[in-house]
Write a protein that binds this DNA or RNA. Structure first.
Lengths: 170, 170
DNA sequence: GTATATTGGTTGTTGCTACAACTATGAATC
DNA sequence: GATTCATAGTTGTAGCAACAACCAATATAC
């Protein structure tokens, strides 16, 4: 089915980079996950959801907007928001302007939750990633991750970049 | 519970790097996963397992060794190997030297499977990662990922490095 | 030689995600 | 204004992973 002779295998440099990235991608989520689970009873994705809401005007976002900001599919987000709603951390109500849409808003309890969880999570991110790198490496990482994102999700990469450079658009 | 004033928040540079890495970590597995699932009916982890076996002497490895090489826990590996065994891709038999241990060996069918799946997977890795980066970035990535691995799993990082530099030890 | 601890692995339970099917609203076409 | 298509989101099902409990075999202590 496949003729090996035509395949460009990875040379040692390429292989070294790929094996290490694969290990990071495999292990890093688990590390952050267990810190949050232990200290705040939150999954990393749940934290990200609450965090994005906490940065939004009125602590409110539409499902679709929240989905793109969290790199999630809509079904996945829907389930997670349902669970968070059951715990009283967010509220859901139909959008008055477009009645297909639903708005998600952080409750007071949810706000408290993020504020309490943030320092610990930040410490974990610092310890395992940010503070492990030199300033040069930090800049390199942004460029590298950007290049990869451009391949795996061209639209989202560009959109996220826009959001970041103009924080206050609708 | 937490006094915000003492927390060192991420500055824009740090935040940019972290947000992008988080997105990569969130999205990359799914991309590779669906390519393998579609083309070879294999999860990325299953592929990794078969691949590690294919590189081992006699296509055989003990569970614990296979677990460290795939960054997996033993329970997870056990389930996966059971499924792969059910599909006839690997065989399990007790280790004669230590009867607590079990050896896993790639079957002929399993070997064929990896060989057929490898080119497509390699193309995906090239397209989404390796070929997206400049030679400089490739070197930087290895260093960055290494630094992160050193934090999130010190022992394994060192061990993997040893394996890589001396391919033929027992 | 027996008791205890450690190592190597398996099995069961629970929770989350992916995928697919479905409902409802809005927009577009005729 | 009825029909068709697209958009926004929910719900149900199946499969995988994490965690904990468990069993078996080996090493160690006495």
């Amino acid at each position: 089915m496949s003729s090996n002779s035509e395949v460009r295998w990875l040379d040692p440099r390429e292989r070294a980079a790929w094996v290490r990235l694969a290990a990071v991608v495999e292990l890093l989520p688990g590390v952050l996950e267990s810190q949050l689970r232990r200290d705040a009873d939150l999954s990393h994705f749940e934290y990200w959801v609450l965090s994005m809401l906490s940065e939004a005007p009125s602590h409110t976002l539409r499902m679709t907007a929240l989905a793109t900001r969290t790199n999630a599919t809509l079904p996945r987000l829907s389930h997670v928001v349902q669970r968070l709603g059951g715990r009283g951390l967010v509220g859901r109500f139909p959008c008055p302007e477009d009645r297909r849409a639903t708005n998600v808003r952080l409750t007071d309890e949810g706000w408290t939750k993020v504020v309490d969880a943030a320092p610990g999570h930040l410490m974990a991110v610092r310890h395992n990633v940010v503070d492990a790198l030199t300033p040069d490496q930090l800049g390199q990482l942004a460029g590298i991750a950007d290049a990869i994102l451009e391949r795996i999700d061209p639209g989202a990469a560009a959109e996220a970049w826009n959001r970041e450079t103009s924080q206050s658009d609708g």
